[in-house]
Amino acid sequence: MGQWQDFTTGERLKVLRGKETQDSVAARSMLSLHTVRKAEQNGNVSLPTLLRLAEAYHTDVAVILGQQSPRRGMSPDDRAMLRELSRTVHDTAAGILMDPAEGVAPGPADLAEAASRMWRVYWRGAYTDAGALAAPFLRSVALYAHAAPADQQAAASALLSDGYRAAGLIANFLGARDLAYAAIGHAIRYADLAADPVRSSMLGSARARVLLRDARVDQALREAEGAAARNEPTFSEQGSALLAAYGKNITFAAVAASRLGDSARAADLLSQAHAVAARLGRDIYRNGMQFGPSYAGAQAVSVNVSLGNAGRALEIAGRFDPSGLTQAAHNRMMLDVALAQCDARQWDTSLDTLLEVCSAHPEWSRHQAIPGVIIQRVGHASTSRIRKLSAILGTSPTVR
């Protein structure tokens, strides 16, 4: 059997289908038989179709596009980091702590600084580096929590929740779905022990993110909406952090609704998110969470791309100020812009935008599905650009 990345998308879909009939796949994915056949014939499919096929095959869209193998094709550094992160998550959850003799027992101030450093790296989109920081952070917090007096246990639980949430988000991004689910579950437990409404609310969008990456879109929508409903603040009396967490959940629900093609629901949720962002008046950054006008604007671009409103997406992207976005959020918005340009048949412009993002952030880009979608759809437009992108992404050129 050849290398997974050397197959065409259609060939990969056939391998994933195995002995199952195309009719069965169509029924499970809620796609037409014609769409399933067309996907296997030429692999030129839309992102919503890819999401439904990924759900039907219980895999990631990046696997279908050849960016990852079915067993997670990733770099040695990614694999080493994930092994250490996985061991740390499971050890600390089981009460297996590092030996205090390995270093000075951490204090709250040291842990707070370590958490800030970890989230700064995460916001840059350097997820392998963030994971390398998350593992020792989590071990240190577990040791601190074990020795903390009763009056410090709530603070220790809050820090443990942050560590597990970071581990879950990083694992999710790199396609380690089992670790992501486990880590987010531990994060929820410790947020409850900390009795911290902000952290509990933030975990709604975190769990929804894992569900969405796992192509469980309906459940992602229910999770995000449910988390928003459980933690809905009163604008006049709640702090900005809780309001930001609420807005993040509403925004993520809008994203999930758009992936389901529910334009009315997505528009309503997005309107609510913009109202919350306007109330805040600025972007809030706390414990790895960002929400505010910049974030809501970027997600409005994504929602409109998913709904097929390319012109509207490009209009939004052209008139709002993205300077408040984290690097990772800005990168993702530019991928959405490139996809909107592709949908608008601005082939060369789309490839230029994609090449700019992928050249500046190659490690981040290799774990994204959108570059593969665009390359397949506009590969005929520019052979040289496709070859450059394929070299960056570590895939075989697909030029028609």
Rank of each mutant, 00 (worst) to 15 (best):
K248N: 14
E223K: 03
S86A: 14
R279D: 14
L221Y: 05
R319T: 15
N249Y: 05
S359G: 14
T8C: 01
I374P: 03
Y122K: 06
I284K: 02
T8D: 11
D283V: 00
A241V: 08
P397C: 04
V104F: 01
A360T: 08
V399M: 07
S365D: 10
A183T: 10
V337A: 00
A39S: 11
R117F: 03
H330W: 14
P76C: 00
I250F: 00
F137R: 00
F291S: 04
H34Q: 14
H186K: 13
P371M: 01
T326Q: 09
E232T: 09
G107A: 00
R79Q: 15
R177Y: 09
T353D: 03
P106M: 07
N44Q: 15
A264H: 14
M74L: 15
E113H: 11
Q327F: 07
S69N: 12
S294V: 04
G318M: 07
S46P: 08
D151Q: 12
P76D: 08
T21W: 06
H90G: 00
R265F: 01
P136M: 02
P149M: 09
I250E: 00
A167H: 07
L351N: 05
A54T: 08
G204I: 06
I184N: 02
D214H: 11
L339Q: 15
D178H: 14
A298C: 03
V357M: 06
K14Y: 06
A145W: 06
S365Y: 09
Y144V: 08
R385L: 08
P293M: 04
P48E: 11
